[in-house]
């Protein structure tokens, strides 16, 4: 009854369903420019670009995330929209995006004015981050500052950054607790609600979870450093743990395998789609075969039967 349905390629739409903070559309009096979507270097992945939104006058930075699950579409007014995504535009601390540039410049060890640091051939729009209200004022969280005349100079500071990130983690923990988010390893469902709150034992779980969340916004190196700074031991995921070798090494000489099994590991041995069975074949396959002889049994040599 079910026929194969072909997936037509996604065509670009010119409409999106967006949930945004009120502040995105509240236009400040003074201003000039409309809120704009811009692509900027993602601080955690480094090279990849992600989508952000700058509020009008570039005053506030927002990140854009999409709720995206298979088999969803929208009915909007009298139309259907194939793209079933729900975009969230949420406020973001611009310092996270400035940080990679400061770190890069910090390697030279010099104090530099921040507008010299914020240069990026690939993403020239990154200079606009500097006009966000929180940018200039919060640079001292991650950098040492010097003022010569009216010009400010900055130099990246790892210690300050760690303290700043630690605060972020602790704030996140507070929010996680308040929003009743299950952080334990055993819990996989977001809808699972804990009846009892085991506060003390969960402290580390919360810290780790919050650290993971913050790590979405910083580079991997920083994430590792932060883990140390929080005095959390690094977890090795169970996947990486190799099972203990069953063969004992008898000599120091490199062992050579007696048989080469790797040839079975080639592509033709990989998962093949199961063959389609007709309805009749399916019902046949379900038949209880206990006590039935296989067809080939009738063709085996008679020797055994005669011996009896």
């Amino acid at each position: 009854m079910t026929t194969k349905k072909k997936r037509t390629p996604h065509s670009q739409n010119d409409r999106w369903v967006v949930v945004a903070a009120d502040s995105v559309v509240e236009t400040p009096k003074k201003d000039d420019s409309d809120p704009t979507f811009i692509r900027l270097r993602n601080p955690s992945t480094g090279n990849a670009a992600s989508l952000y939104l700058l509020g009008s006058g570039d005053v506030q930075l927002y990140e854009v995330k999409a709720f995206n699950e298979d088999f969803h579409s929208w009915f909007i007014g009298q139309t259907v929209q194939r793209d079933g995504r729900l975009l969230y535009v949420t406020p973001m601390d611009p310092l996270f995006l400035l940080l990679p540039y400061l770190i890069k410049a910090g390697k030279e060890g010099k104090f530099q004015p921040v507008d010299q640091v914020m240069m990026d051939e690939d993403f020239p729009a990154c200079t606009r981050l500097l006009s966000c209200i929180r940018s200039q004022a919060s640079l001292h969280h991650v950098a040492e500052e010097k003022e010569v005349g009216s010009v400010k100079f900055q130099r990246y500071s790892q210690e300050r950054t760690m303290e700043w990130l630690k605060k972020k983690v602790h704030r996140t923990v507070k929010i996680l607790r308040k929003s009743n988010i299950s952080v334990g390893e055993g819990v996989k469902s977001t809808t699972y609600v804990r009846v009892k709150q085991e506060s003390e034992t969960q402290e580390e779980d919360y810290l780790r979870y919050a650290h993971g969340l913050i790590s979405e916004y910083i580079s991997e190196d920083l994430s590792k450093a932060l883990l140390k700074h929080l005095q959390l031991p690094e977890l090795s995921s169970p996947k990486e743990v190799e099972p203990p070798s069953k063969k004992r090494k008898l000599t120091d000489k490199p062992l050579e395998a007696g048989e080469d099994y790797t040839k079975f590991n080639s592509s033709d041995f990989s998962r093949k789609p199961p063959k389609k069975m007709s309805a009749a074949q399916k019902t046949l396959a379900k038949v209880d075969k206990t006590g039935m002889k296989s067809m080939s049994a009738f063709f085996s040599p008679k020797g055994k039967a005669e011996k009896k």
């Binding site: 992600s50 989508l51 854009v64 999409a66 699950e69 979870y209 969340l213």
Partner: peptide
């Protein structure tokens, strides 16, 4: 491959490269 934190994957949230 960068592994997205489970807070986002559990909620089917992803970053966007383009609109």
């Amino acid at each position: 491959t960068h592994q997205t934190h489970r807070f986002f994957t559990e909620r089917r949230l992803q970053s966007l490269a383009t609109l």
